[in-house]
Amino acid sequence: TTYKLILNGKTLKGETTTEAVDAETAERVFKEYAKKNGVDGEWTYDDATKTFTVTE
């Protein structure tokens, strides 16, 4: 399944996708990605669109 991440950081904005077996796995991948890019904020997930959003 393809999951999407929307980054709404103070200095970094953008989108990325990952293939994962479930939302929990995708969330771990995306949180590591955000951490590596210095983005830390509020996380939300929309199951209907398989989209995570992190907003600083």
Results as ranks from 00 to 15, higher is better:
residue 50 K to L: 09
residue 28 R to N: 07
residue 29 V to T: 11
residue 27 E to Y: 12
residue 33 Y to V: 06
residue 33 Y to I: 06
residue 51 T to I: 06
residue 49 T to D: 05
residue 38 G to H: 10
residue 18 T to E: 04
residue 47 D to S: 10
residue 24 E to T: 12
residue 22 D to S: 09
residue 52 F to W: 08
residue 13 K to I: 12
residue 2 T to F: 14
residue 46 D to N: 10
residue 8 N to A: 09
residue 1 T to D: 14
residue 55 T to A: 04
residue 29 V to G: 04
residue 1 T to L: 12
residue 55 T to M: 07
residue 24 E to M: 14
residue 44 T to R: 10
residue 43 W to G: 00
residue 36 K to H: 15
residue 12 L to E: 06
residue 6 I to Y: 07
residue 46 D to Q: 04
residue 36 K to W: 08
residue 16 T to R: 12
residue 18 T to M: 15
residue 21 V to T: 13
residue 24 E to A: 12
residue 25 T to H: 15
residue 45 Y to P: 00
residue 17 T to E: 07
residue 24 E to C: 09
residue 14 G to F: 14
residue 50 K to T: 04
residue 43 W to K: 00
residue 11 T to I: 10
residue 24 E to Q: 14
residue 7 L to S: 03
residue 6 I to V: 12
residue 42 E to G: 06
residue 35 K to M: 14
residue 41 G to H: 02
residue 21 V to Q: 12
residue 12 L to F: 15
residue 44 T to F: 12
residue 39 V to R: 03
residue 18 T to F: 11
residue 38 G to C: 06
residue 23 A to Y: 15
residue 2 T to D: 05
residue 51 T to D: 01
residue 50 K to A: 06
residue 47 D to T: 13
residue 55 T to D: 07
residue 36 K to P: 01
residue 27 E to Q: 11
residue 25 T to I: 08
residue 42 E to W: 08
residue 6 I to K: 08
residue 11 T to M: 15
residue 24 E to R: 10
residue 20 A to P: 01
residue 44 T to W: 11
residue 3 Y to G: 00
residue 48 A to S: 13
residue 8 N to V: 11
residue 55 T to F: 08
residue 34 A to W: 03
residue 21 V to K: 15
residue 46 D to P: 00
residue 26 A to M: 01
residue 48 A to M: 12
residue 34 A to Y: 02
residue 12 L to T: 14
residue 23 A to L: 15
residue 22 D to N: 15
residue 22 D to Q: 04
residue 13 K to C: 11
residue 32 E to H: 08
residue 53 T to K: 06
residue 56 E to G: 05
residue 51 T to L: 04
residue 21 V to C: 08
residue 5 L to T: 01
residue 20 A to C: 06
residue 7 L to M: 14
residue 52 F to K: 00
residue 50 K to D: 03
residue 1 T to S: 10
residue 25 T to C: 06
residue 39 V to N: 03
residue 29 V to L: 12
residue 7 L to C: 06
residue 39 V to E: 02
residue 5 L to C: 07
residue 39 V to G: 02
residue 44 T to Y: 10
residue 31 K to S: 05
residue 10 K to Y: 09
residue 13 K to G: 06
residue 29 V to H: 15
residue 47 D to N: 09
residue 19 E to W: 15
residue 35 K to H: 11
residue 52 F to Y: 06
residue 47 D to L: 08
residue 22 D to V: 03
residue 7 L to D: 02
residue 4 K to N: 06
residue 47 D to I: 11
residue 44 T to Q: 12
residue 35 K to T: 15
residue 7 L to A: 04
residue 46 D to W: 04
residue 44 T to S: 15
residue 26 A to F: 01
residue 1 T to G: 10
residue 54 V to L: 09
residue 32 E to L: 11
residue 26 A to H: 00
residue 38 G to K: 07
residue 39 V to H: 04
residue 15 E to N: 08
residue 53 T to F: 08
residue 1 T to H: 15
residue 11 T to F: 13
residue 30 F to L: 05
residue 37 N to L: 15
residue 2 T to L: 10
residue 6 I to D: 03
residue 25 T to V: 09
residue 49 T to R: 06
residue 52 F to L: 01
residue 47 D to M: 12
residue 22 D to E: 05
residue 17 T to M: 10
residue 34 A to G: 03
residue 11 T to D: 14
residue 40 D to Y: 14
residue 34 A to T: 07
residue 54 V to S: 02
residue 48 A to V: 13
residue 28 R to C: 06
residue 34 A to Q: 02
residue 41 G to M: 02
residue 16 T to H: 15
residue 50 K to S: 05
residue 8 N to E: 09
residue 10 K to H: 15
residue 25 T to M: 13
residue 41 G to T: 02
residue 9 G to N: 04
residue 16 T to D: 03
residue 15 E to D: 07
residue 46 D to M: 04
residue 52 F to R: 00
residue 10 K to S: 13
residue 44 T to V: 10
residue 13 K to S: 13
residue 33 Y to F: 13
residue 41 G to E: 01
residue 45 Y to Q: 01
residue 4 K to G: 04
residue 45 Y to M: 02
residue 17 T to I: 10
residue 44 T to G: 06
residue 1 T to A: 14
residue 8 N to M: 13
residue 4 K to S: 08
residue 31 K to N: 04
residue 14 G to S: 15
residue 39 V to T: 04
residue 3 Y to R: 00
residue 37 N to D: 03
residue 9 G to T: 12
residue 4 K to R: 12
residue 44 T to I: 08
residue 52 F to A: 01
residue 21 V to P: 15
residue 10 K to R: 12
residue 43 W to T: 01
residue 13 K to E: 06
residue 51 T to F: 02
residue 16 T to A: 15
residue 44 T to D: 12
residue 22 D to L: 04
residue 10 K to E: 07
residue 1 T to K: 07
residue 38 G to V: 04
residue 4 K to A: 05
residue 5 L to V: 03
residue 49 T to G: 05
residue 7 L to H: 03
residue 5 L to F: 06
residue 45 Y to V: 02
residue 30 F to I: 01
residue 4 K to Y: 14
residue 31 K to Y: 07
residue 38 G to R: 09
residue 29 V to S: 07
residue 45 Y to S: 01
residue 45 Y to A: 01
residue 23 A to I: 12
residue 16 T to P: 02
residue 19 E to H: 10
residue 9 G to S: 09
residue 10 K to A: 14
residue 15 E to P: 04
residue 47 D to F: 10
residue 14 G to P: 04
residue 30 F to Q: 00
residue 13 K to P: 05
residue 24 E to F: 11
residue 43 W to D: 00
residue 49 T to C: 04
residue 15 E to I: 13
residue 28 R to Q: 09
residue 49 T to A: 10
residue 34 A to S: 05
residue 34 A to H: 01
residue 16 T to C: 08
residue 53 T to G: 03
residue 7 L to Q: 02
residue 23 A to G: 05
residue 27 E to P: 00
residue 4 K to H: 15
residue 2 T to C: 13
residue 39 V to I: 12
residue 56 E to W: 08
residue 21 V to H: 12
residue 56 E to M: 07
residue 48 A to E: 13
residue 48 A to Y: 10
residue 50 K to Q: 09
residue 9 G to K: 04
residue 19 E to P: 05
residue 50 K to F: 12
residue 6 I to P: 00
residue 55 T to V: 08
residue 6 I to M: 06
residue 12 L to R: 13
residue 32 E to P: 02
residue 1 T to I: 11
residue 47 D to P: 12
residue 41 G to R: 01
residue 13 K to M: 09
residue 33 Y to T: 03
residue 15 E to R: 06
residue 12 L to I: 14
residue 3 Y to A: 01
residue 27 E to H: 10
residue 55 T to R: 06
residue 54 V to P: 01
residue 56 E to S: 08
residue 12 L to K: 13
residue 32 E to I: 08
residue 26 A to D: 00
residue 43 W to L: 03
residue 8 N to G: 04
